[in-house]
Amino acid sequence: MSSNSGAHSPVKTTGLHIGEAVPGVAKVDPIIIADNVTRTFGGLKAVDVEHVEIPRGAITALIGPNGAGKTTLFNLLTGFDKPDTGTWTFDGTRLNGVPAFKVARMGQVRTFQLTKALGLLTVLENMKLGAQKQTGENMFASLIKPLWRKQEGEIEERAMEILARFKLDTKKDDFAASLSGGQRKLLEMARALMSSPKLVMLDEPMAGVNPALTQSLLDHILNLKKEGMSVLFVEHDMHMVRHIADWVIVMAEGRIVAEGDPESVMQDAAVIDAYLGSHQDVDLGVVTGRVSGENTAGVEDLLADIEAEVGLTDSSAYIADTNTDTQEEDTK
């Protein structure tokens, strides 16, 4: 399928921003522009984004420690949750108060961190459900099959095409509930593509997917860009972010603390504090144990350093604090 397999370096899209790459930097061609978006849960400010723009036609990674507010921001942007304040536009249309299903119809589709395969529908039915503007989805038209038979055939053809790309075509008649966790992730992504979206938002698409499958997932995401879609994805594994992202946005405690291309973001002091401690050479995948670590000594160091660093730098003390909590949880 893809000759541009992830083993070789994919072509990065550059020249996305205008001016210096600071948090909230303007983009040449933004697909989403959000202003003053906040969301509090009780006393906790889960999202507090002053300004952010997501570039069009590029792969943007949203990273940050656990609880940074990434999923909450996804929910707000897609209409699954309502913000306390803020405005945002998608493709030039204001989305405040627009219900989730209308957001999806505009071409902004998402997947969920906790996979939502429709278990008691077959894989093929899952796929067909993703197609838009189906005549047969009207209750009255649905009673008369000739009205929708032809469209149904076209949808099925397209579904099989995408399923084949995701190597799920042999499973088409199985209940989605019988798929493995990784296969469900693939199905959810494949299903989202049925609507020919403009922007695909993936919440941790690689979590729980085995390394062999990860490679093909990465290829799929790169392919989306080739087909002209924009991608925004949340990911904890720095390997992958560095590998496929054209742009990286870093969140911590609800705020955007850094932005830039992957290489420079990894060197950004704020990110290093927020996310990697002082060991940017240590991959977070190793820290969380996802990538088997040749770097075990480095990881030990990192954990120790983070512990020691709490409260040292005043501007980022709270960030380091969060990070420490997370790490402690991981070691428990």
Binding site: F101, L118, G136, M139
Partner: peptide, 28 residues
């Protein structure tokens, strides 16, 4: 007739997980 149609498919999808169906652009 209803349940063999795309309408029925949406309804069964809602039974399984309505947020997923919403994310696919259906007025749940």
């Amino acid at each position: 007739l209803l349940m063999r149609s795309p309408w029925g498919r949406v309804l069964k999808g809602i039974r399984e997980d309505e947020d997923a169906v919403r994310a696919l652009g259906k007025n749940v």
